[in-house]
Amino acid sequence: MNRVLIVSDSHGLTEELMEIKLRHACTYMFHCGDSELEFDAKELEGFTSVGGNCDFDSRYPEEFVTDIGDLSFFIAHGHLHNVKMNSMTISYRAAELDAKIICFGHTHIAGAEKINDQLFINPGSIRLPRGRTEKTYAVMQWDNVNDIEVLFYTLDGKLVEDMTYHTDLADK
């Protein structure tokens, strides 16, 4: 089973990032920006990280694309794509790069949603959540593109069951 840990908007938290990494031990880990840490901070070791509007280390890329199995991921913070307004700009950018999974932050609002043939995942914030009281991050897992599951966890590792999201990204 493929598993990806997705975190965003940790805004200076360090011990918490280390705990989350150890708790899930995923092969792939994305930080969608606003860590407020140096690019090479030990807490970010193992994460593919992008820069957010509160990250001032110029070594962070603005966006990142990678393939895991049959899926292509686009990782961005979202502030440069106006995600607080709508998902259109980030959707177009991901499509330009042939990415089907879009991982982003910036809004601090956790959620997963399939729109057309793209899956949008915002893990929320482990420091300053909006829309819900839980401080959250996400784990996406799948064996094949016909059965993708996105699980949301609280900062202390409890599953937020009512946020679990299942989808199928297989071409129809």
Rank of each mutant, 00 (worst) to 15 (best):
R127I: 04
E134M: 08
F74H: 11
R59W: 03
G131H: 10
K21I: 05
F56K: 01
V160G: 02
E16C: 03
R93Q: 13
L44C: 11
C54G: 02
C103R: 01
S125M: 08
A170F: 07
G52K: 06
M1W: 02
T167G: 08
K21H: 01
V139Q: 00
K172T: 09
E113S: 14
N122W: 09
E63I: 05
R132E: 05
G131K: 06
I121C: 04
L80S: 07
E19M: 12
E161N: 13
G12E: 03
A112T: 04
M163Q: 11
R93C: 07
A170N: 12
R132L: 14
L97S: 08
D9N: 13
D57T: 02
T164E: 12
F39K: 09
E45A: 13
D9F: 05
D143P: 00
D147F: 13
D40R: 15
I20V: 15
R130N: 13
T48I: 14
K21P: 01
F39S: 01
I75C: 14
C32H: 02
S49R: 05
H106R: 06
M85H: 12
S35V: 07
F30I: 11
H79M: 04
S8W: 08
E15I: 03
C103M: 09
D143M: 09
V4E: 01
I90E: 07
D171L: 11
C54R: 02
F30K: 06
T14E: 15
A99V: 10
M18V: 15
G46E: 11
I121T: 04
D117Y: 15
F47N: 00
L13D: 05
N53E: 11
S72R: 15
D67R: 12
R59I: 05
Y60E: 05
H81V: 02
A25E: 12
T167S: 12
A95V: 08
E36Q: 13
E45M: 09
N53A: 11
S91R: 10
D162Q: 13
M18W: 02
D57M: 02
A94C: 08
H79Y: 06
A138C: 05
V4L: 14
Q141R: 14
A170W: 04
Y28S: 07
Y137H: 11
R132S: 12
H11T: 03
K42T: 08
L71D: 09
P61S: 10
I148H: 10
Y92D: 13
T89I: 12
G157K: 06
D171N: 07
F56A: 03
T107M: 03
S10Y: 00
I115S: 14
V4W: 05
S91Q: 06
D156T: 15
V145Y: 01
E62Q: 14
I90L: 10
L37R: 00
L151W: 00
A25F: 03
I102S: 13
F64V: 06
Y60C: 03
I148W: 09
T14L: 05
G111L: 07
H31L: 03
R130G: 07
T66M: 15
L17R: 01
K172Q: 08
L37K: 00
G124K: 10
G69E: 10
L17F: 00
V150L: 08
